[in-house]
Design a protein around this nucleic acid. Structure first.
Lengths: 206, 206, 206, 206
DNA sequence: AATGAATGAGTCTTCATTCAT
DNA sequence: TATGAATGAAGACTCATTCAT
């Protein structure tokens, strides 16, 4: 059990930073606005994060915490365990739904990291190594089991995973960007539909 | 035949801006660096783009030109025409491959626009109205034909389109971000695989 | 008794601004020179006056303070009170002398405001409403009393006031612009002479 | 008879400059706006006036032409001549009225010069030597004659001249700045009143 | 620990001036 | 002669960072 004694001030600053970075992007965000939102003096930020960039690092580190072992792995294992007797399709559905919920919960983190990783090598490396690869590895395991069980075809797991991820992300983005165009209001139904698509394809077999 | 005599200075500036915006993001990019890359004096930029923000608008407008009627619509129609006797799968493959090529050619534009649209309402609106909606509309038409021909199931066209787009984008991103993880080096083969997946699903039917 | 603790930095900046505006005019003055004179970093100016124009407003506001109630009204009333038994001519002399002294003390303020009011609507409005009209109103009162006492003719008070003001201002300007031409070195004597002129005219009655 | 072959272009530029300087002040005026008003290319200005400052000099020189011998002296002499049998008061009235008309005709010139002379030594010197002193000298002559004729008291001519000038200028300024406060709409009547005041004073003699 | 005034390097932007056409 | 594109020095303004309290 780790002893986390993060002063409340530090946390407030980091929360404010996520907000502001999310709204304006890292570069356009100012330490002055972050300070205001965190309700601390501007100087106080630099007590905890001597450079602005360390705020970004702080966010990535926290995201790794959230999406890393603590949340992703654990709940993934739980989900797999809870669905172990069900068909792959059901497991997949449960996993995706879970992931979407986590993602929505920590939307701000993901937004910041996903957008900034293009510009900051360190962020990119951390994200790839500590989040992306791990997450993919995990889903791959589930897929691999299904493959061994001959429930699904012998397609590269990475491609299956990636495709599913792409479909889901695109749905989330569309819901953000063009909410009016969304015909299916319920996100669960939409996930259902997408997994059906992924499992059986769109070809008409009648 | 009209001789376009766009002083070429303007074009050089815009090209430099796309580069620099792509590398650092709009906000972190400086007009001074753009000037250096375009090999003009800093002041010259402001003769053509009185505000830094107009450089961004210039990019969006040019992208609309490229992805709008000139390229997307025309070549889409060509593609459809050239494949009119083939099965939907073949048409889809041709369309995606074409689109991916256009996208790779104008990667820098798309990167900038996709990143910045979240921070700039004007960019977002232009992108959605002039590029996204139009492109979706077009693909929808192709999908709708296939549906009427009963080649594919009666799934909402938007969802099919979006899913395909998500799969392809994710592939492109992965190739950019984690090129080492890519097992299939040939992009055509990978598109092939993805369309097979989309058409027939991943379920094992043996 | 409240202890005004206006950081004094603000005051130093404003003082420097008055100097520089006075010497070069608002538009030709640079924040960099103001900073140098105030012995602060250029950025510091903008903590107190976020726009250059607010320096001008600051000056006008301060001038309103000085020429407004605090100085003009109060000392005018004092002057009137101290001279209440004397003839109008004596009162007028006392008033003008007082005003000239105040004016000379705050010459820089007036110079800046009088020059800039033609270019800045806000400055003009403030000056007219808060300084000019009030001052004229006050002198009018004194003139009106003298009129009621039948000490002076029934000429529009505004015109009398304005004429006196014009004579005095012209004298001050001449002393500034062409000091060599000034035959009467003592300003009090010159005021004396002008008031005699105003009272009895220049016509020879011998 | 002087042969003035000032190209029409030069004149248009100078006219535009007077306008723009008058509206914004020398320093805030831009050569670009002057060019637009003169309907010439920006570069053309510098063919005639290699430095911006020379536009100001051009204006001063032109003003000297107008207010100098050509207009002021000549018409002054005419006025004196035409009124030689009349009382000093009538002559003065005629002179002032004439001067006011000239002034209003060339208001823009005067405005620019009077305002800029504080900031530009060369302008100040030219104005004082070529316009102010000459004009004062002339009026002095008239005043001196009246003095010798014992029509008016033995007050320093400079002071009389200056006072009259101050009164008139103040009237003109007031008409510009606070037109609503002007009770006497007719400028001639106002001049009349002021000269009466100057001649006989404001003291009640009944 | 926290503050917030002060800093100054760096940014966008303006504009007088030059020069090839 | 006249043009107007290009220049670059200089100006207003921003903001991460420092430091005395």
């Amino acid at each position: 059990m780790t002893m986390k004694k993060t002063s409340n001030t530090e946390e407030r600053i980091l929360d404010a930073a996520i907000q502001v970075f999310g709204e304006k992007g890292y570069s356009a965000a100012t330490t002055s606005e972050i300070a205001k939102r965190a309700k601390v003096a501007e100087g106080t930020i630099f007590r905890y994060f001597p450079k602005k960039k360390e705020l970004l690092h702080g966010i990535v580190l926290k995201a790794i915490d959230i999406f890393g072992e603590k949340v992703v792995v654990k709940s993934l294992e739980e989900t797999v365990e809870a669905n172990k007797d069900k068909a792959f399709k059901e497991v997949l559905k449960a996993i995706v739904l879970d992931r979407v919920k986590i993602f929505e919960q920590h939307y701000a983190y993901m937004k910041v990291i996903l957008y900034e990783l293009q510009f900051h090598d360190d962020v990119r490396r951390l994200f790839i190594d500590k989040i992306a690869k791990q997450a993919i590895e995990l889903v791959k395991k589930v897929v691999d089991i299904a493959k061994k069980n001959r429930e699904i075809k012998d397609i590269e797991s990475l491609i299956i995973t990636r495709s599913m991820l792409g479909m889901v992300l695109m749905m989330l983005i569309q819901r953000q960007l063009m909410p009016s165009e969304t015909s299916i209001s319920n996100i669960e139904d939409e996930i259902d539909l997408m997994i059906d698509m992924l499992m059986d394809g769109i070809r008409n077999r009648d």
